[in-house]
Simulated assay, not measured.
Amino acid sequence: MSTRIWNEHEVPEGLESCQLCELAKQRRRVIWGEGNPHAAILALLDNPGAREDANGVPFVCGTRITLQEAAAEVGLGEADLYVTYVLKCRPIRAYDKQVCRDACMSHLQKQLEDVRPRLAICFGNIAVQSFFGDEEAEVKRLRGAWHEVRGIPTIVTYHPLAVRRRPSLRNVYMEDWRELARRFRSGE
């Protein structure tokens, strides 16, 4: 399967210079999301990773490769998914994680209102805890079932990077993707 850079969703006017948290002082740019901003499925990751090299040349990072390959394996693609992040910029050095995540949640809430997804999938504990509003939430306990979160049927799974680092997670990761695709196709 060949992976490619999915279309990046333009940052809403005025938010490209967001100053709500300390990440404003270290970021290269704000990254709002990618894929189809009108998709039925919202895919939530913790933060954007490396999207371009030091010269600004875009590339597909390991997280996105693993995500895109899983989506393709279950018959989903860019048109079906809107990928976004709890944090809207890539952290470069240490930061106050909880303060920044809390600040960025207003942006995610705006996206939910704009995108109005029918389903959501959260990748990794940070995305799960932020989306669920529960610092104790964890993928290991919550995966394998649907949850109603923010009015959206939501499934959780491991972060694609965790799957890359621990291939033993791939089977359960793919179970979660298959369940997402099943529910998407059933119209539930």
Results as ranks from 00 to 15, higher is better:
125 N>D: 13
98 Q>T: 15
125 N>P: 06
132 F>H: 12
121 I>V: 14
106 S>L: 09
88 K>L: 04
115 V>S: 03
130 S>Y: 07
123 F>Q: 08
117 P>I: 06
120 A>L: 10
126 I>A: 13
120 A>Y: 06
114 D>Q: 15
89 C>M: 10
116 R>Y: 03
112 L>C: 02
104 C>K: 13
82 Y>C: 05
124 G>I: 02
87 L>T: 02
104 C>S: 15
99 V>L: 12
96 D>Y: 02
117 P>V: 05
124 G>P: 03
82 Y>E: 00
104 C>T: 10
105 M>N: 15
92 I>S: 08
89 C>E: 11
124 G>S: 01
109 Q>H: 13
109 Q>V: 13
125 N>M: 09
131 F>R: 00
101 R>A: 12
131 F>S: 03
97 K>E: 15
112 L>W: 07
94 A>I: 05
100 C>K: 03
84 T>A: 00
106 S>G: 15
84 T>L: 04
97 K>C: 11
108 L>T: 09
122 C>Y: 08
84 T>D: 02
109 Q>G: 07
111 Q>V: 09
92 I>G: 06
95 Y>F: 12
123 F>I: 09
114 D>G: 12
90 R>H: 02
88 K>V: 00
98 Q>P: 11
93 R>F: 06
95 Y>A: 09
88 K>W: 00
128 V>E: 08
126 I>D: 13
129 Q>S: 08
122 C>P: 04
105 M>C: 11
83 V>E: 01
91 P>N: 00
113 E>W: 06
88 K>E: 04
87 L>V: 00
96 D>M: 05
87 L>W: 04
110 K>Q: 14
115 V>K: 05
90 R>P: 07
100 C>E: 10
119 L>D: 02
86 V>T: 01
